[in-house]
């Protein structure tokens, strides 16, 4: 295969990769934020709030990401929600990830020993202070491995954004492949690239996890 196509299309691919990373990071941050909100609301909300959120979680988890994207991007305009591909993609990633993040936070909160919360109440802390000073710090650390794990799963979902023409790396590879008829080479290179990328961020994630847990052990 002619390697010169990679020099010719290099800048495009690079720009695509940059966008992939942006989508991944923003999707993780927004998705996790929404998920955290859901988890806290489920913990402290009333019966109807809990029921509504659980339904939302089941709906999102029961349908494919691609169909959610189509609904948002093509169906949205029919109810006045007109979005460009990138914002639609980011919103889609946020919504798609939120129930998984919510479940991660929920089980992490459940794993916080009740004694810690009772200790907070015993010294007269407000519920809000308990959430901020006890539930979140303790819960977040124990949620970290699962958060990192799901964030890595999200990197792989970002390529689906190419189907609604977000110009991330998959889209750019497709463009190159179509222009130069290098479909197999292009996709296989992308596969190898993604493999390496996911391996690298998994390792970084494990290192981060160790550092944060070590910190915890030193302080307690």
């Amino acid at each position: 295969m002619d390697l010169s196509i990679f020099t010719e299309y290099g800048p495009r691919l690079l720009a695509g990769f940059r966008l992939t990373i942006i989508c991944w990071l923003l999707g993780t941050v927004f998705g996790a934020a929404l998920g955290l909100l859901i988890a806290v609301a489920q913990r402290y909300g009333g019966r109807s709030v809990r029921w509504a959120l659980q339904t939302y979680i089941e709906l999102i988890r029961g349908t494919p990401f691609l169909v959610q994207l189509f609904l948002l991007y093509y169906g949205g305009p029919m109810i006045g929600l007109r979005l460009d591909p990138l914002p639609a993609g980011l919103l889609g990633l946020t919504i798609y990830g939120s129930p998984y993040f919510a479940e991660i936070f929920r089980s992490a909160f459940r794993a916080v020993p009740p004694g810690l919360i009772e200790a907070g109440r015993a010294i007269g802390m407000t519920e809000l202070a308990i959430v901020r000073r006890i539930l979140l710090p303790v819960g977040l650390v124990s949620a970290l491995p699962a958060l990192i794990n799901f964030s890595i799963i999200l990197t792989k979902e970002t390529v689906i954004l190419s189907i609604i023409t977000v110009p991330e790396i998959m889209y750019q590879t497709q463009y190159m492949a179509t222009m130069t008829f290098t479909f197999l080479e292009g996709y296989f290179t992308l596969a190898l690239f993604f493999w390496a990328f996911v391996e690298v961020i998994s390792r970084l994630g494990r290192r981060l996890e160790r550092r944060i847990t070590r910190h915890l052990i030193e302080r307690t």
Partner: peptide, 22 residues
């Protein structure tokens, strides 16, 4: 395991789709 779990399914699908005729 690491390859199949590391590469997005969409990419794998296209690799297989274009590999088979080759």
């Amino acid at each position: 395991v690491s390859y199949l779990r590391g590469v997005p399914m969409l990419v794998q699908l296209l690799v297989v789709f274009f590999l088979l005729p080759v």
